[in-house]
Amino acid sequence: MNIDSITNGIVIDHIKAGKGMEIYKFLGLDAYECSVALIKNVPSKKMGKKDIIKIDSLLDIDLNALGYIDPNITINVIKNEVRTEKYHPELPERITNIIKCKNPRCITTTEQELPHIFKLTDKNGPVYRCLYCETKAQ
C-alpha cells in the first residue's frame, strides 16, 4: 500500500492499532481541505501493529491533547520533505470536552453548555480530575 510522502505536513505515528479513527475525529480532521491519510494496522517492529495519520499540511492544531488519549504517540513535523521535529505529546494540563464527568452530583450534569474540563493533578498515573467537583476521570 503506497501513500505519497509529504512535503510539508504532520505525521502522527505509533498510534495504537484501531485508535486512528478516534484521533482523526478528535482532531476534527474531516473539517480540513488538505489531504489526510489514515492508515490502519500497519506492521510495526515495536508494536506489532499500529495506525498512522499523515496530514499534508502544517495545520495549526493542538496536538498535545493527544497525550491524554495515547502518550506513546509520536508526532513528526515535516518541512521541505525533511523531518524537523519528532516528539511525544506531553500530558496536557487541561483537557476540554474530551471526557465527561461521571459524578451525578457535579454541576456539569445540570448547567447548560458548561464545558467538561479536567485538570492534570498527578503526572504519575496520570490522574485527571474534574475542574468543578474534583472527581477523578475514569
Partner: peptide, 10 residues
C-alpha cells in the same frame, strides 16, 4: 450554597 458540586466555581 448549592447541592451540585462545583456550582460556586461556575
Amino acid at each position: 450554597r448549592h447541592p451540585k458540586e462545583g456550582a460556586p466555581m461556575v
